[in-house]
Write a protein that binds this DNA or RNA. Structure first.
Lengths: 160, 160
DNA sequence: TATGTCAAGTCTCAAATGGAACTAATTTCA
DNA sequence: TGAAATTAGTTCCATTTGAGACTTGACATA
């Protein structure tokens, strides 16, 4: 899939970095990167959709409507990135923006029909990969993972 | 810390995307991004060390010596990135490369004393943040997290 | 020992990224 | 009220990133 990676199809177990200085954080980052990397490469190639564009579609599809600053918080991504993604999606007719009547600085963003359609097409690949991946875990593991990651998500500390 | 982010110091709980199409994967990515983002910004500012450079120092410090292709597998990062990181670290005198006698294409990489010293300085911030972060969990949670993330790390699927 | 294939690593180039400065709207509070 | 501070979002610019082509070395098969 990715010609920039060495040819090994699976990670060698002895090249997993257990017991490192930052504990599970390393594994969390490794899993996150390794999981999404091929998907975004695929979206880019097949649909000319960037990571930022997909992420925005994804959260809009779930929340219905959002403002850019809410997207920043939801994704943890910088606002200039979000701003560019929004502009691009708008120019492609995949989302629409309207002024917030209460605050002229803010724009309320929603997907268009086309955008919703594209999202439905894209998400199939993502969920299939996620299901494959999580199928390695039994039900208890999945519940533990859900609970723990949610707990961590809700209280991400700023830098100390 | 990051002027590109909206000013909220903590994530709003209602802006956490629970029950989404890809389950815990979303949280894993969110946590990974939100966790490392401020650290690498800090390293860049204070030490002029990029993410790639740190990651290479980190795994070298743990494994002693490695070749570039092993780093790719361990990190899930593209080989051209690793190659550039290695070149930069070498030019700064933080790592050293020597030919693999068994295969002239390969280079065996190790940290220099300076590199090891810098790593020791950098890792303090990282582990402090990791400890703060994981202190949100009780011992059972931590063990579950370790176990599950390790299981997932060891069997990352290629794209389907 | 030729020859085609594969592997490790580098290079090029276009695109994505993030920090910082900026604009414009809103809020704070003297 | 009005100046100062804050916030939402954009733009600029330098750096980082990744895909793909490329180079060189190893290896398999004949």
């Amino acid at each position: 899939m990715n010609k920039n990676q060495p040819a090994q199809q699976f990670t060698h177990s002895d090249l997993i970095l257990e017991n490192n200085a930052i504990g599970s954080i390393w594994q969390i980052c490794f899993v996150a990167n390794s999981f999404v990397f091929p998907i975004y490469a695929f979206y880019d190639k097949q649909y000319k959709i960037s990571r930022m564009e997909f992420v925005i579609l994804f959260i809009l599809a779930h929340k219905g409507k959002l403002m850019a600053w809410e997207m920043c918080i939801m994704t943890g991504l910088p606002k200039n990135n979000i701003s560019r993604g929004v502009k691009k999606l708008e120019s492609k007719g995949l989302i629409k923006r309207s002024q917030d009547p209460k605050d002229a600085r803010r724009a309320i963003l929603v997907t268009t029909k086309t955008g919703e359609g594209l999202y439905q097409e894209l998400i199939v690949h993502y969920t299939r990969r996620a299901d494959d991946f999580l199928s390695l875990l039994d039900e208890d593991d999945k519940n533990d993972l859900d609970r723990i990651m949610l707990k961590l998500s809700k209280s991400m500390p700023t830098i100390s």
